[in-house]
Simulated scan of single mutants.
Amino acid sequence: MNVVVVGATGGIGNALIEALLDEPRVAQIFAFSRCTGNAHAALCSERVIHGFVDLEKEASIEQAGKTLRDTPIDLVVVASGLLHDGNLRPEKALKQLSQDSLQRVFQINAIAPMLLAKAILPHMRSDTRSVFGVLSARVGSISDNRLGGWHSYRSSKSALNMFLKTAAIGSKMLQPNCVIVGLHPGTVDTQLSAPFQRNVKPEKLFSPQQSANYLLDVISDLIAEDSGKVFAWDGEEIAP
């Protein structure tokens, strides 16, 4: 198996690489991130090929796809995401919205995965099952939205889910064995969720390693009919 992980130095991305390296069938992992150093031990494996990508620049995403050359890819997991950063915080009210924050959140959570699909899907293996998965979120479900708030994050994940559905429909003719899905990792003890863990029950706060293993179990069970859907860490389908 040849695997691509985008967001390789993040909590979930790195945990995915660690788990995948325990799988003998994995020949090589293309690990993409904005960080150029090998800060994590797993990234020092000879089976890991480092690649740079800046998800806010289309040319960088295109170049990342080109580095795959003629390698047939079996699995892609886009493990990047943006909820808060510096002065950027999830909005509780409309008055907190700004064009700059909306654009940045949509760029990382929705636009970049779309451009990654454009760059990488042509490299996906076509003779057997392959999977293109992107970390989504339960809060991106329109029908499940009962609390409001988090306007840009919710909306960006909803846009992502719509894109995955649309891409799945479009790929059926050319790549019928490619399963395109969204993956909700649960609440994971990473920098993304750190400011919002106060009311999370201990058993519902996963370590990155737990979440990565759950997600890989979900991925292993996917079939062609699942393409275009969004699944939670426990295999439950999340309603649009």
Rank of each mutant, 00 (worst) to 15 (best):
N109K: 10
V26T: 07
T128P: 10
K201W: 09
S98F: 05
K229P: 06
N161T: 03
S141Y: 10
P208F: 09
Y153N: 02
D70Q: 14
A239D: 13
A39H: 06
K157E: 13
L115W: 12
I73T: 01
A112G: 09
E225D: 15
Q175K: 15
L21T: 12
I17H: 04
V200Y: 02
N109A: 03
R34K: 00
F106I: 10
C35R: 14
N199D: 14
Q197W: 00
V218M: 09
I169W: 15
R34D: 07
R198Q: 12
G133N: 13
F30Y: 00
N213K: 09
G7D: 13
D22E: 07
V218K: 08
K57I: 14
R47S: 05
D127W: 02
Y214E: 05
E18L: 14
A42Y: 12
I180E: 07
P24T: 11
D217Y: 06
L147A: 11
G133K: 01
Y214K: 14
Q103P: 12
L75N: 05
A59G: 11
I120H: 00
L183Q: 03
A167P: 05
A239T: 15
E46R: 10
K204D: 03
D221A: 13
E91D: 08
L116T: 09
L102K: 01
I111N: 13
N109L: 06
A19D: 03
T71G: 05
A8F: 13
R125V: 07
A159I: 11
S171P: 05
E91R: 07
M114L: 11
I169D: 04
L97T: 02
K66R: 12
A27I: 01
F52A: 02
A41E: 02
A79C: 03
T36G: 11
I73K: 00
D127V: 11
R138G: 02
A212D: 03
Q103W: 12
P90L: 03
D144K: 07
N2V: 00
N2S: 06
S45W: 08
T187G: 05
A112C: 01
A194L: 15
E236Q: 13
M114C: 11
D74I: 00
V76R: 03
S156E: 02
I61A: 10
E91L: 04
K204H: 08
V48R: 04
P176C: 04
C44K: 11
G133R: 00
R138T: 15
H50M: 15
I238M: 03
N199F: 02
V5S: 08
E58F: 14
I238Q: 03
M1L: 12
R69K: 06
G149P: 09
M173Y: 06
P208Q: 05
I219F: 01
Q210Y: 12
S80P: 07
L216H: 00
H50N: 14
D127A: 08
K201V: 01
A27Q: 15
M173R: 14
S98H: 09
G10Q: 03
K172V: 06
Q107N: 10
K172G: 07
A112D: 05
E58I: 14
A19N: 01
S158Y: 09
H50A: 13
A168R: 07
P195W: 01
T166H: 01
D100H: 15
E18S: 13
F163E: 02
R198M: 03
S155V: 14
D70T: 13
L121N: 04
L215I: 02
D144G: 11
L205W: 07
Y214C: 07
R104S: 03
F32C: 13
P185Q: 01
